[in-house]
Simulated assay, not measured.
Amino acid sequence: MPITTDNLDIRDDAQIFSGSLGTGDAGNIRIHANILEILGKGSAIASSTNAGNGGNITLNIADLLLLRGGSFISTTAGRSQAGGNGGNININSKFIVAIPKENSDISANAFTGTGGNVQINSQGIFGIEARPQPTEKK
Results as ranks from 00 to 15, higher is better:
47 S>C: 05
48 S>F: 09
48 S>C: 05
49 T>M: 08
51 A>C: 01
51 A>M: 02
51 A>H: 00
52 G>Q: 01
52 G>V: 01
53 N>S: 02
53 N>H: 07
53 N>Q: 00
53 N>M: 02
53 N>P: 00
53 N>Y: 00
53 N>G: 02
54 G>V: 04
54 G>W: 02
54 G>F: 02
54 G>D: 03
55 G>P: 03
55 G>H: 03
56 N>C: 13
56 N>R: 03
56 N>D: 15
56 N>Q: 13
56 N>Y: 09
57 I>G: 01
58 T>N: 06
58 T>Q: 10
58 T>D: 10
59 L>G: 10
59 L>P: 02
60 N>M: 03
60 N>D: 13
61 I>L: 00
62 A>N: 14
63 D>R: 06
64 L>Q: 06
65 L>P: 00
66 L>Q: 07
67 L>Q: 14
67 L>A: 04
67 L>H: 07
68 R>G: 09
68 R>I: 03
68 R>Q: 15
68 R>W: 09
69 G>N: 06
69 G>W: 03
70 G>F: 14
70 G>E: 09
70 G>Y: 12
70 G>M: 13
70 G>S: 12
70 G>H: 11
71 S>I: 04
72 F>N: 09
73 I>K: 14
73 I>W: 14
74 S>P: 01
74 S>T: 14
74 S>H: 08
74 S>N: 13
75 T>Q: 04
75 T>R: 02
75 T>I: 09
75 T>C: 08
76 T>F: 15
76 T>A: 15
76 T>E: 13
77 A>K: 00
78 G>T: 11
78 G>Y: 04
78 G>L: 07
79 R>F: 10
79 R>E: 13
80 S>K: 05
80 S>Y: 13
81 Q>G: 14
81 Q>D: 15
81 Q>H: 06
81 Q>P: 01
81 Q>T: 14
83 G>F: 02
83 G>K: 04
83 G>S: 12
83 G>A: 09
84 G>K: 00
84 G>L: 01
86 G>P: 00
86 G>S: 08
86 G>V: 08
87 G>K: 05
87 G>I: 06
87 G>W: 01
87 G>S: 06
87 G>T: 05
88 N>V: 08
88 N>T: 12
88 N>K: 09
89 I>W: 04
90 N>Q: 12
91 I>K: 08
93 S>V: 07
93 S>W: 05
93 S>C: 10
95 F>K: 11
95 F>H: 11
95 F>A: 13
96 I>L: 03
96 I>S: 02
96 I>E: 04
96 I>G: 02
97 V>Y: 13
98 A>S: 15
98 A>I: 06
99 I>W: 04
99 I>E: 11
101 K>L: 12
101 K>E: 11
102 E>A: 05
102 E>C: 04
103 N>C: 14
103 N>F: 13
104 S>E: 14
104 S>A: 15
105 D>M: 14
105 D>F: 06
106 I>D: 07
106 I>T: 07
107 S>T: 12
107 S>W: 10
107 S>Y: 13
107 S>L: 12
107 S>Q: 13
109 N>G: 08
110 A>I: 05
110 A>S: 15
110 A>K: 06
111 F>M: 08
111 F>S: 15
112 T>N: 10
112 T>M: 12
114 T>R: 07
115 G>P: 01
115 G>A: 15
116 G>E: 01
116 G>R: 02
116 G>N: 03
117 N>F: 07
117 N>A: 13
117 N>Q: 11
117 N>D: 14
